[in-house]
C-alpha cells in the first residue's frame, strides 16, 4: 500500500493561508489503512480547523486517485475556497486535475510503498523500479531495502543484522543471506549481478501503462 504521513498542523495552516471555507477530504484506501488520511483523520482535522474558526467540513471518498470516485464531489467543491486532501500525492493530483479552479493542498507527505510490519510500524518494501528482480534475492528487495541499492552483496557496514545507515532498520543483505541460506541457494549470491537497467524506472522519465484491449 501507499504510505503517507500527515504534515504538521502548523504547515497545513500555512498552506491554507487566509482561506476560510475548507473541505478536508479523506481517502478510503491506502491512507486509511495506514491511519493517516482516512475518514477518522479527516474528521479530526476538520474539527481542529473549526476550533480555529475555519468553516471546515470533511468528507471521505473511497479512492481519491480514480476520477469516478471524485466526480460526485462536484457540488461540494463549489462551496469551498480550498481542499485539503488527505490522500497520497496521486489523489491530490487527481483532484487538482478535476477542479482546476480550486486550490488543492496536500495534507500528507506521501512517503513510500510499504506494509505494516507490526501494529503501528510501517516499512518500505518496493521502489517501483519497473523491472522486478526481487526473486534473485530470496524475496527481499535490495533496490529498496538496502540504503545503497547494492545488488552484489552487503556493504562493509552491516552489523548484527542492522543497516549502517539506519541502525533501527534491518540490513537487507543480512535478510537476503539468511533467506537464501535457508533455501540452500547461497550459490545464487556468487553470480555477479550486472548493472541494473534503470530505464523502466522513474529514472527513465515518468511512466505510463497501456492496455490496448481496454482502450475505448
Amino acid at each position: 500500500m501507499i504510505i503517507g504521513e500527515r504534515k504538521p498542523v502548523k504547515e497545513i495552516l500555512q498552506l491554507i493561508g487566509d482561506r476560510k471555507k475548507i473541505l478536508v477530504l479523506g481517502c478510503g484506501t491506502c491512507v486509511t489503512v495506514c491511519l493517516s488520511g482516512g475518514e477518522k483523520e479527516a474528521k479530526e482535522l476538520a474539527s481542529l480547523l473549526r476550533i480555529k474558526k475555519y468553516q471546515a467540513s470533511d468528507y471521505t471518498v473511497e479512492r481519491q486517485c480514480e476520477p469516478e470516485f471524485i466526480r460526485p464531489l462536484d457540488y461540494r467543491l463549489k462551496e469551498v475556497e480550498a481542499v485539503l486532501s488527505l490522500a497520497c500525492g496521486v489523489g491530490v493530483q487527481a483532484l487538482a486535475d478535476r477542479y482546476p479552479r480550486t486550490p488543492v493542498f496536500p495534507g500528507l507527505n506521501t512517503t513510500f510503498l510499504g506494509m505494516p510490519v507490526e501494529q503501528g510500524r510501517w516499512e518500505e518494501r518496493c521502489g517501483g523500479c519497473g523491472q522486478c528482480i526481487v526473486h534473485l534475492f530470496g524475496g527481499t528487495c535490495p533496490v529498496t531495502r538496502c540504503a545503497k541499492s547494492l545488488l552484489n552483496g552487503p556493504c562493509g557496514g552491516s552489523k548484527d543484522g542492522k543497516c549502517e545507515v539506519k541502525p533501527d532498520r534491518d540490513c537487507a543483505w543480512q535478510l537476503i543471506y539468511d533467506r537464501l541460506k535457508l533455501q540452500g541457494r547461497l550459490d545464487a549470491l556468487l553470480e555477479i549481478q550486472p548493472p541494473k537497467d534503470w530505464s523502466p524506472s522513474r529514472h527513465g522519465g515518468h511512466r505510463k501503462m497501456i492496455r490496448e484491449d481496454m482502450l475505448l
Binding site: 504538521p8 498542523v9 502548523k10 495552516l13 479530526e44 481542529l48 476550533i51 480555529k52
Partner: peptide
C-alpha cells in the same frame, strides 16, 4: 498533541 500543534489553548 494535535491541539498543541495547531496552537489551540484547549
Amino acid at each position: 498533541a494535535l491541539l498543541q500543534e495547531a496552537g489551540i489553548e484547549k
